[in-house]
Every structure is written in C-alpha cells, then in structure tokens.
Write a protein that binds this DNA or RNA. Structure first.
Lengths: 328, 328
DNA sequence: TTGTACGCGTTATCAC
DNA sequence: GTGATAACGCGTACAA
C-alpha cells in the first residue's frame, strides 16, 4: 500500500492538514515544520493520490483520444508523431492521454460520451476533421470540451488547429518554378475531400501567379501503385511535365518509381515528410505536427472566456528540399 | 454536472444503495424495483463515476505505456499496430491505456514509479525489451506489475510475450529454398542485439538443416541506404547469392532498390510486414502484433497465482509471400 | 500557524 | 429485499 497524507503526518509529528498545506500552500507553514514534513515525504516516497485528487476536484486531468486502426496502405503517417506530441504537451500541464478504440466515427462519439459521463476524461482531441464530420456537432451538443485538428467549414464553436495545406503546395510549386521547371503537374486525392482540394489549390494558384499554364491535374487513391500509374500517364504525354507536386509522400514515392521504371526524369515533391521521404531523398512539405499537438492541448486546457471566440490557429508548413526536386 | 446515484435514487423513489445493488448485485433487487431504477438510469443517462469507483476499489483500471519519439529513419513500424492492439485489448476488461513520455529508459522508470505511486495506473506494458534492459529489475524491485514485449534473458519473474524471431527467418529461408534458391544471404542489424542474432540464427540453422552452405552474413544499421549498399556488396561477388533474408522491411526495401539499380535480380524477404512491404510487393515475416497486445494485457490483468510462474508466451510469426521472393 | 469537520461518488457491511 | 453507516484519500472553509 502507498503512503497517504496521514502516514506522512504521523511520521512528521504533525496533523494531516499541515501536510496538505505544505504541498498546496507552503507559505502558510513555518519553515522548520515544512522541512520536517518535506523530509518525511521524501523518506516515505509519498505522492498525492491522483484518483482522490480527481474526485475532490472533479477533474480527471485526462485527455481522451481515439486511436484508429493502422491504415494498411499508407507508407508513412504523421499519426504517430501527433500522438507523441500530444502526450508530451500534456506533460507540462500534468495531464495524460487516455486512449480508446472505436470502429467508426459514431462509435468514437459514443465512446467519448461514455468516457465523459463517467468522469474519466476532461475533454478530447479530435484527429482528421473533414467537411460533414459528425463529431464536432455531437460533442458540442453534449457540452463536451474538445480541440480539433482540421476543419469542417463550420468551426466557429470550438477550438481548432490546422495546417495551411495550400501554403504547403504553394511553397512546393514555387520552389520547382525557381529551379527552372515550367510544366508542373499535380497528383492528388480524388476530388471532393477538402484537404485534397486545398493542396490542389495551392499548386494551381501559384502557377497562375507565376504566369505559367497549369499542367495536368491527376487524381487517384493514396497508394504507391496509383502514383506509379499516374507517372506513366503523365509521361505518355507528347510534351510531358518535368515536375509533379504530390498530395502525399505515398503518391510521390509511386511517381518516383513510375518515372524510374520508364527511365525518365521527373522532379517530385511530396507531402508530410514521413520517414519514407527521407529514405527516398524526396523533397517534401513538412507539417509542424509537434506545434499542432501543443496548440491543441493548450486550447483544450485553457479555454477562451465564454464571451470570446475559441482559440484557432492555422500553422504554416515547411518545405524540406532534398534531391528529388532538382532542375529539369 | 453529471447525475449521481443519488439523483437516480431520487428519480426512482428508492435509496442510494438500492441503485448500487441494481448495478452490482441485481439478483438482490425485486424485479419491479429494478425496472423502475433501470428506467431512471436510462432517462437520466447515468453512468457510474469511474474516479469514485477507482478510489473505492483502489484500482484505476488504467494501464501505463511510455510512447517513444518516432524513429526518423525506419520506413515502417509495428509500434502503431501495437498501440492500437493494446487499447483494443483493454476494452474487453474495461481498462484504458494511459500514455506518457520520457527521454530515455531511466526516465521511463521514474515516470512509471511516479504514476504507480500516485495510483494513476494499475500496471505497465513495456515495449522492446533487450538484454541488460534496466526496466524489469527496477519495476520488480518496486513491486509494480507489468508485462513485457520481448525478453532480457532473465525473464522468470514477470509475464512476457515474445515473437519467435528465429522461426520467422527460418520460414523465410525455407520458402526461398523451396522455390529453388541455393545461395541465400542474410542482411541484419549490427551484431550483439539479441533480436538481430535470433533472426540470423533462424536463417543459419535452416540452411544447415537443408545441407546448404550459408551465404554471406552482412550487417549494418537499419536504413534504406544500408540495404542498397549491402545489395551492391553482395552482387559484386563473382558468384553472387540469388536471394537474401533481411532482418527488417527497411533493409529489404534497400536491398530491392540496390539490386534494381544494378539491373540485377535478387529475391528478398523482409521482416514485420509493414505497409511498405505491401506497397513494394515484398514478401515479409509478419509478427502477430494484435495477439501480442492481447496476451500482454491478459497477463497483466489476470496475474498468475503467487506460487505459480508468471504467464509467458512465445508466438509464431507468419510468412506473407509476395512477388519479391520468386524463383531464381 | 494548526487542527476539526465535511464532502467529492461509489460500494461493502450489516442491521432491519 | 431494503436502507442506514462507514470508508477509500484528498482539499478546504472554518474555528481555535
């Protein structure tokens, strides 16, 4: 059994509450008494019981997070980076991450509701928001605090953090133009997803701003095979592009492979700067995931005043230049 | 504020304890009373407060886990699979995963001690045990329950789960022999690590059992670049091997690339069956990580009787055959 | 400055 | 079968 305040009090020859005061209001205790108590604490290895503290404060100091199953085709993911960043961000404010699983978004909502009702968590961090996402309205309706990564398009009611996707592909496109490319294509997700469209938009707008005609705008599912197929498609053109901006590192890796299979040169820039990008010497747009995690935890634990708007930040990504984006 | 037992009791016109009995010992309550209480519970959306339950039971129903920073060079990892498996395994026994961070193994031990002293977790799951690992003796010394993935060589005192690494490379080697290869090399971690040596041992023993001479046994750090370099080294041989057993998918991917760069054919089998393997059509040895996670949680939550040995299981991996291990 | 009393929400024990 | 009482460990208003 762990020692309690009572044990410490007995060992130090003071009352239970004096020990509590030493911990929570040290200035109220005479220095010599404090030292005696602190010695007893150290000697017994006493730590306040978090569960009792939680019950007393009706705050669990836990942040809930649903962990998704691993996506079997994505060659690299930022998910593990985010998880570490969240756990690390909580440390400074003495909060911990509580993981739970669910089969889908409705299960995630049901699980969040149950955990919150049971007092197991103070709030949640939501990953991968998208247009039409059912989670924000559901949690808002039940009055459950949360912070989100991504946006739905109706994000006024809760704190959120997002990365400026368009700025990322814009930087990639600008970089390719600067090293001399003039025909620059785009390879992305199927049309409709908001993240994908924003990445396409950054590419398109930058070409326009540079006075260059947009190259082909190809789409497909996020896999290596698709990337390779798109590369073949691009190179079949009588006047093929010399560079491609890809919406993910997975597609970018596929494009590199497709081009190499044809013995052709093709400059490629990926997105997410996964370990795969580093391994393949692939230039890539890096999301500031550590900052995202810290910003979400901060927004969740230090909510805005009731009359002000919730915290919201749009963070800039950073282009990591490697060998795959060389001049034509 | 969430409803409490008291609220339910008032709504159902019974005492607080009758409500508790309905939840924890239903057979003691007259059916009609029970129904009335259950209706009140449903109507109020009552859920027992986990924190109060924890305090009462002195069990937090939490499992602690230290999440490591992402290794920047490994192209695929089984870590995210394990995390999901652990969270999922806890669900069945109404336990949740509590994540924390630490800078190194000593920090992990200190954090575990603090969390356990504070009553925040009931026990821990340890990842990546190796010979000389300081964590098992430290936790045993403090009487902190834990289950481990991997072995140190002195594993009698605590529950552990491991994957039979030698059986994995043995299956890979046997498969390559069966499809017709006779000169089969090995590419692995630098000598010394126990996991790496077991994987090498499975390869060596199988060749011996088949009456074949062992091919070159090459080692290097776990990166794509190393794999490519080792491929070049192998193919420089006047009588080069036609196949390689690799200790990781990352090395295997590098070997494939190295061979392709030389325009040579080289059959390769990797280890871990990461998404990278699927993407590259790479045969690979798959660890049963989901089973590992479930076995660890089971062992942790249902400890062996004090007089019996702790639970221990050595799980078999499975060879996933794809295109990279075709006949010579 | 120190000690006393109470409540956070739950459940086990024990009378009735 | 049901209801009062106590206890888990802590923090805090209040009194001394």
């Amino acid at each position: 059994m762990q020692p309690t305040v009572e044990d410490v009090a007995r060992a130090a020859g003071v009352s239970r509450q004096t020990v509590s005061n030493v911990l929570n209001a040290p200035e109220r205790v005479r220095p010599e008494t404090r030292e005696r108590v602190e010695a007893a604490i150290a000697q017994l290895g006493y730590r306040p019981n978090r569960v009792a503290q939680s019950l007393r404060a009706s705050s669990s100091r836990m942040i809930g997070y649903r962990i998704e199953p691993v996506h079997p085709f994505a060659v690299g993911s930022i998910h593990d980076r985010l998880l570490h960043a969240l756990a690390d961000a909580g440390r400074a404010e003495d909060h911990h991450l509580l993981l739970y699983t669910a089969d889908d978004l409705d299960g995630e909502i049901a699980g969040a509701l149950a955990l919150h009702r049971a007092g197991a968590v103070d709030g949640f961090v939501l990953y991968g928001l998208h247009a039409g996402d059912p989670r924000p309205p559901a949690l808002l309706h039940h009055g459950i605090p949360f912070a989100a990564f991504g946006r739905t398009g109706h994000d006024e009611g809760h704190p959120w953090v997002d990365v400026d996707n368009a700025a990322g592909t814009a930087a990639a496109t600008r970089h390719l133009v600067e090293v001399g490319h003039r025909r620059i294509a785009f390879a992305g997700y199927p049309r409709g997803g908001d993240v994908g469209e924003r990445r396409a938009e950054g590419w398109r707008a930058t070409l326009e701003a540079c006075g260059l005609p947009p190259g082909p705008d190809l789409r497909g599912e996020d896999s290596l095979a698709t990337g390779a197929r798109l590369a073949a498609e691009l190179l079949d053109d009588p006047e093929p592009p010399t560079a491609v901006v890809a919406a993910t590192d997975t597609l970018a890796a596929g494009l590199l492979r497709g081009a190499r299979d044809r013995g052709a040169r093709l400059a490629v820039v990926g997105f997410d700067d996964t370990p795969t990008a580093a391994a393949l010497d692939l230039s890539s747009v890096r999301q500031p995931i550590e900052a995202v995690g810290h910003a979400m935890v901060r927004a969740l634990l230090n909510p805005a005043p009731p009359d002000g708007p919730p915290a919201a930040s749009l963070l800039p990504p950073e282009l990591i230049v490697r060998g795959s984006s060389c001049p034509p």
